[in-house]
């Protein structure tokens, strides 16, 4: 192949690959919020993988009256796209008002925010400074339990 055709040929390959990958990725994630796939509930088990040291952490902003308000703004900016406007679950993210999340230690939620669940599509959020991650935890915990209809989350024994 002549060198002058190499660039356009590779550009076409790049765009085709991007389209193909985004198609495949999106179709994997194409689910109705009302009927999440089974593996989505499996994501909650990631909370149990938080190390004991991380689970034992307490929220340093627990008594900060602005933490929930600030956390709400952060949630709308960074999380609502996947988890829904009020954290009840969205196209790509599970319901954060499920009992599994609401009953989890704050340290475990903070650990998930920091580390993400990279192989299941949740990015790491350590790019948000630690106080902002705690503000997010404050907001999420303030929401309370509200299981989604197709995924009734039972309280843990």
């Amino acid at each position: 192949m002549k060198a002058r055709f190499l660039g356009p040929f590779l550009a076409i390959c790049v765009v085709a690959a991007l389209l193909g990958v985004s198609l495949g990725q999106a179709q994997q994630g194409n689910v109705s919020p009302a009927k999440p796939p089974k593996d989505k509930t499996g994501v909650y088990s990631e909370l149990d993988k938080a190390p004991q040291k991380a689970r034992a952490k307490s929220n340093p902003l627990q008594s900060d009256p602005d933490a929930v308000l600030a956390g709400r703004i952060l949630f709308e900016r960074h999380c609502a796209e996947c988890h829904g406007d009020v954290a009840e679950g969205g196209h790509h993210g599970p319901n954060l008002r499920a009992a599994e999340v609401q009953n989890a230690p704050v340290g475990a939620i903070f650990w998930i925010l920091t580390n993400g669940i990279v192989w299941h599509g949740m990015p790491v959020w350590s790019k948000l400074p630690e106080p902002q991650r705690w503000q997010l935890v404050s907001y999420i915990k303030s929401l309370g339990v509200k299981p989604s209809p197709a995924n009734p989350a039972l309280p843990r024994p």
């Binding site: 389209l19 985004s22 990725q25 999106a26 179709q27 994630g29 194409n30 796209e81 196209h91």
Partner: peptide, 16 residues
């Protein structure tokens, strides 16, 4: 722009 992958899927007949 979030949701670009979904959008491309939709353009090609996938569900959003």
């Amino acid at each position: 722009f979030s949701g670009f992958g979904d959008l491309v899927s939709h353009l090609f007949g996938g569900q959003r």
